[in-house]
Design a protein around this nucleic acid. Structure first.
Lengths: 256, 256
DNA sequence: CGCCCGATTGACTTGGATCAAACCGAGTGG
DNA sequence: CCACTCGGTTTGATCCAAGTCAATCGGGCG
């Protein structure tokens, strides 16, 4: 995994119809995971893809939102903003995560592509109807929402009680854990990874300023916990040492 | 609403069978809201009540949890703790809110009764089966979970970006809004209310220390935004002024 | 080459934490 | 009836982690 984050600079255009669901990389993790046969066929017929380049907005808080979607590849962020501009990230959407709320027609958050992003979209009205007709869909979405709620609560613990250093360590640990999971390994020892967020986005995620993020990154480097490669590259000298700096309770916390 | 918080010192015992669901105060807001006739009868047959006095633990993180429940009356809190003891509240359960996760047999959080609490409980196994059989149940739970997720995200914004004064003002505003809602009014002008949490619990909720909570309460009093009555009593001189101190974006945020 | 944007570093300020005393009201028992 | 205790709360003095303001760096690109 040394390749740079796939910055998917696709021509933000059709790709329509695209691949068969059977070949989809998130086939068994997304909202459609439990659907088979007819059910999957229904979804397959109505799905359409949309791509976004890194940095592009996906939807803006308050905008009408006539679709829901699964993240196929890339990373998107959800942020909430106070009138005076203070912004807090409230969701980090990774491949297979779900964007949008069935039954709600207005976006509650700003969604932005942090890297290149490909979404598998469904028009909201028809999707809402499918939710009624296909219990598998509703069940899977419930499961995913409960997972996100758990992750959000883990995140609240981080925001409310961890120090800046612990926050940074926790964040890097989350990325490391997720990367390991996507390769069906368990994280350990020396790990090379690529952060999917800029310093600014990290600050928004962690409830810090960009300067503090930067300082703590260098502090962790000075202390030999990590090595910093370019803007996005980080190498852990030892996963366990990083965890020791994270303040604990990092059971998962990957999603939401 | 001047009466002290109903401290429901019930003999933490049976109450078994109790009232008919038809008379239940949370009949149309809890997880059972959309159930009628046969479905409701099934639930009615298997439900049982449990009561807890203020301060009592309900379940502890890691404990086996063989039931799920709706809060009938009172207020319960969910907290998450770091090894070294730092604690953050991650959920505030009000009447009609749901406790426990279908399909999970171990508590993920410490749940504590903040006031006297009455729970309407279901054994987890049978409830899980009902979830499969009664789509209304699953749909309602999904809806409630999505609401909690929204509330959790609002809370993350508070934890990550608001000042101590804004946090306190936001918290009081949430309580005021909820109280108004329970009386089907919209909050405005002068409002008398009773906080359902101690200073310590407020601090845990807001990611502050008890001293800072106390100081900011007195500061708001000095500035004429609130009056403080006893340990738990607060009177807003003007709801709008309080909101102006809260840093905004307080659309709801009541639950979770 | 020079610009631009994200990241880093430094100097200084400050909001909230920490440590340490009181305070206050509701029991409780002499 | 009053002294004592006890839990929750308030207040004060001091400290320090993180924020703010400002300058600089460094790589990619026109």
């Amino acid at each position: 995994m040394r390749a740079p984050v796939p910055t998917q600079v696709q021509p933000s255009s059709p790709l329509q119809g695209g691949a068969r669901c059977g070949d989809c990389p998130i086939r068994y993790r997304a909202v459609c995971a439990q659907c088979e046969g007819d059910e999957l066929a229904l979804l397959e017929r109505m799905k359409f893809y949309r791509s976004f380049e890194a940095g592009q907005p996906i939807v803006w808080e308050g905008d009408r939102m006539d679709f829901v979607a699964s993240v196929v590849s890339g990373v998107a962020t959800l942020t909430r903003t106070l009138e005076d501009g203070r912004a807090q990230m409230v969701g980090l959407l990774l491949p297979s995560d779900f964007l949008g709320r069935p039954g709600r027609d207005t976006a509650a958050y700003n969604a932005t592509a942090a890297t290149g992003v490909v979404l598998c979209c469904f028009r909201r009205g028809p999707f809402d109807q499918l939710m009624q007709r296909i219990p598998h869909l509703a069940h899977r979405l419930l499961e995913m929402t409960l997972d996100e709620l758990d992750a959000a609560r883990e995140w609240m613990l981080l925001l409310g009680r961890k120090t800046a250093r612990e926050k940074i360590a926790s964040f890097i640990a989350i990325i490391a854990r997720r990367q390991a999971a996507s390769q069906k390994r368990r994280p350990a020892g020396r790990i090379v990874l690529e952060l999917p967020l800029t310093r600014e986005a990290m600050a928004a995620y962690l409830g810090l300023t960009i300067e503090t993020v930067s300082r703590q990154m260098t502090a962790l480097r000075r202390d030999g916990i990590i090595e910093i490669v370019g803007k996005r590259g980080v190498t852990l000298t030892d996963y366990a040492r990083l965890i020791a700096e994270s303040g604990g309770t990092g059971d998962d916390g990957a999603t939401a």
